[in-house]
Design a protein around this nucleic acid. Sequence first.
RNA 1: GGGGGUGUAGCUCAAUUGGUUAGAGCGCUGCCCUGUCACGGCAGAGGUUACGGGUUCGAGCCCCGCCACUCCCGCCA
Length: 599
Amino acid sequence: MKRTHHCNELRPAHIGQVVALSGWVHSRRDLGGLIFIDIRDREGRTQTVFDPSDLSKEIFERASGLRSESVISVTGKARQRPAGTNNPKIATGEVEVMATALEVLNQADVLPFPVDDPEVSSKVNEELRLQYRYLDLRRPEMARNFRLRSKVATATRVYFDEQGFLEVETPILFKSTPEGAREFLVPSRVHPGSFYALPQSPQQFKQILMVAGVERYFQLAKCFRDEDQRADRQLEFTQIDLEMSFIEREDIYNLVEGLLKRVWKTALNMDIPTPFKRISFEEALNRYGIDKPDTRFGMELADFTEEFRASTFKVFSGAIANGGVVKALNAKGLAGATQGQIETMTEYAKSFGAKGLAYIKVENGEWKSPIVKFFNDGEKGALTKKLGIEEGDLILFAADQWLTACEILGKIRLYSADVLKGQGKLSIPSDRFDFLWVVDFPLLSFDKEQNRWYSSHHPFTAPVAEDIPLLATDPKKVRGQHYDVVVNGMELGGGSIRIHQPDVQKTIFEQLLQIPPDTVKARFGYMLEAFRYGCPPHGGIALGFDRMIAILCGTPSIRDVIAFPKTAKGTDLMAESPTPVEPKQLRDLHIELKVGRKE
RNA sequence: GGGGGUGUAGCUCAAUUGGUUAGAGCGCUGCCCUGUCACGGCAGAGGUUACGGGUUCGAGCCCCGCCACUCCCGCCA
């Protein structure tokens, strides 16, 4: 046996016992005639002492030659540290182990970067951390993330088990249904020219499981999407996926609120209040300019369409005449914004199709703005009243179609908040979590370029019952039974009540989404058929597990909570994937390359 | 596909804005040191300034290209 205790276990009660510790050399303090080795395992660390008066010369010399991060086993007697030498910084700081034996289990080379110094190692270039991920993961901050991830996964499973859910594994080798995200394809050896696809989500299988009578399904499901990545998006990621039969939206809200309550209690020992607030898609856009609002600070958008309908300022009145709106935002205290910051905001606005970004700086009791000369007293009064304008404020305007105007100011609102945070004028406690449900999404959105409707969520989402007649007459007014759960401006998950009537599903596919009937049959025929043989009403949701863990760990990147993440370009710097393959492998798969092999 | 940022010793960073031999801390190597815990002291090694071109008397610094990492837009039913 290599150890009797772990490295965060020894206390004064163990004094006098002969113990064996195994772990990594955390630090070595060689005083010449006396050597201290801190030995570390995943639980903590303990000081061991090598005193030549009690030891063979050979062992003492072996100790003096030890390098950081070598793996060793030390045997010796636990004892009280001499008076005045306790180390209050570590839990084992009252005791030490007088070494009588030392075994070097693995001699470590000099490390490419330090893992024992949190100050330095947290700043190490991420490229290097990913290349030597096994060293990076030894850092206590990373180890803590993965311990938390594991605890939350377990709490999730326990919760769903208590709620009567079955965990069912669905296939990783699925079929291509190129409706949503780009898929990863897997060539079939047995069926030349045919491919599997990795699932973007287990959506179709979980609905089929409802037809199968499972009633309550969940899974910590691996999902794959071949899209460009972000700090919160990886090619492969994990969802808490669930589906229930014989339920309505309220049942999902209830269930998910219970889950998140349990998770936050488990991870952070926090009691989050439920039920969560609810806000409609329309209200979210009107007030926050985004469908996943961060409600931890104000600076809400206000509407001035009526006030400027007859304005002499043609940019505003003209936009309104075109069916658009005028919206404004008070970036409180940002009048001191630099020209560069205004420039950045303007560029930002332009990237959303805005022609410019009108603004008013309120400084020294004066409205400084290129456009204020066009405003009459009534318009100025309305602005002051609705926006609560005070000295030092920066007012920003968007005049455009409703959705565009809202989204522009939504982005500007978040940008302004970041600037204010940087100036110390806005601070949000790190333990504040504003959860809310966003509901009443439009079922369909219109793609101008392709001149057709597409599903806002996915094509299996049920319309709100009273809106069904509008499908034929005014599709854009139809609300879907879709819901997103949002925390602090981040989308944590989304789902819907599904269509469980094959004729409604067929109408959505063929008449609204304009997918040709034979394509519908080829891609979704088995689902439509399944729905004909007794399909219960059902619905579900999927929560981004990696994102949730990142939020709980307080890190902006999900790479910090995924053991072996990929880079932004989709490579694994440690294992060095992807790679070319042998010609024989390609021949077996009936694949011929059109690119030269890189050497 | 597009835009921004970064790249200098093993690691983290500097280099007076184009000027002589590219520095510091940590780490590493050697020597000294019996109560340290960021141990201490002395000495030393370590550089294709990511890479390839160009401008210049002279380039880490300017220009062009390229690679990698990263953030964002597009994309993510």
